[in-house]
Every structure is written in structure tokens, then in C-alpha cells.
């Protein structure tokens, strides 16, 4: 898995390439914590176009990150998502929590 983060004034983009498995969970934590330190950021968009599966642990981190953004009156969304991951998120009802465009 490859993960990159980019700040654009008051928003940020997190791009993840490849499946998020048990070995890459820590890298996800590190990247999200970095974004959490960007105080000016009010909206974070995730590009998951090349991610097919995400472990339950990583889903938990995404949910907690979503809650963190809510607490700072910010927003989080997923703008690009693979069909496989959209199906996974739909089946576990994650799409009811995190907005998927």
C-alpha cells in the first residue's frame, strides 16, 4: 500500500494506492495523524480508486478519523472509490456513516 497526503489551504487530500491489509494499518495511522495535526484543514477527501479491500481495523481508523473531523466541525468524504470497495462499504453499511460521492 502507498499513501500520500496533500494540504490545499483549508482542505486536504489523502490518496491510497493498493489494498489496506494488516501490514499497512500502521502506515495509515501515521498518515492520518499527520493530517490531524493540520489545524487549518476543514475538509479531508479520500481517493481510494485503487483500493479493493480494507481490513476491519483500518475501517475503524477511518470511522474514528471521521468522528475527529466532526468534532472540529469539519467534514470528510470519499470522492474516488473502486467498485470492489464501494461494495464492501455498502455491505457493512459504512456508506451510511461516511459520505461517498
Amino acid at each position: 500500500m502507498m499513501i500520500s497526503t496533500q494540504q490545499l489551504e483549508d482542505s486536504a487530500v489523502v490518496t491510497i494506492e493498493g489494498n489496506i491489509d494488516s501490514e499497512s494499518g500502521h502506515d495509515l495511522s501515521v498518515a492520518l495523524m499527520k493530517v490531524m495535526e493540520w489545524e487549518d484543514v476543514q475538509h479531508v477527501d479520500f481517493d481510494l480508486a485503487t483500493v479493493n479491500t480494507v481490513t476491519s481495523a483500518a475501517i475503524g481508523k477511518l470511522i474514528n478519523f471521521y468522528k475527529f473531523m466532526e468534532q472540529k466541525c469539519g467534514t470528510m468524504s470519499i470522492s474516488a472509490i473502486s467498485e470492489g470497495l464501494r461494495k464492501q462499504f455498502r455491505e457493512i453499511h459504512l456508506d451510511r456513516i461516511i459520505p461517498i460521492k
Partner: peptide
């Protein structure tokens, strides 16, 4: 359980 950080593993297995 949906909004918790844990407990989704079983969902993923049942899929």
C-alpha cells in the same frame, strides 16, 4: 457496532 472502531471483522467474514 457500525459506528465503533472495532467489531467489523465478522461482517467481512460473513460477506
Amino acid at each position: 457496532c457500525l459506528e465503533k472502531a472495532s467489531g467489523k471483522g465478522i461482517f467481512l467474514i460473513k460477506r
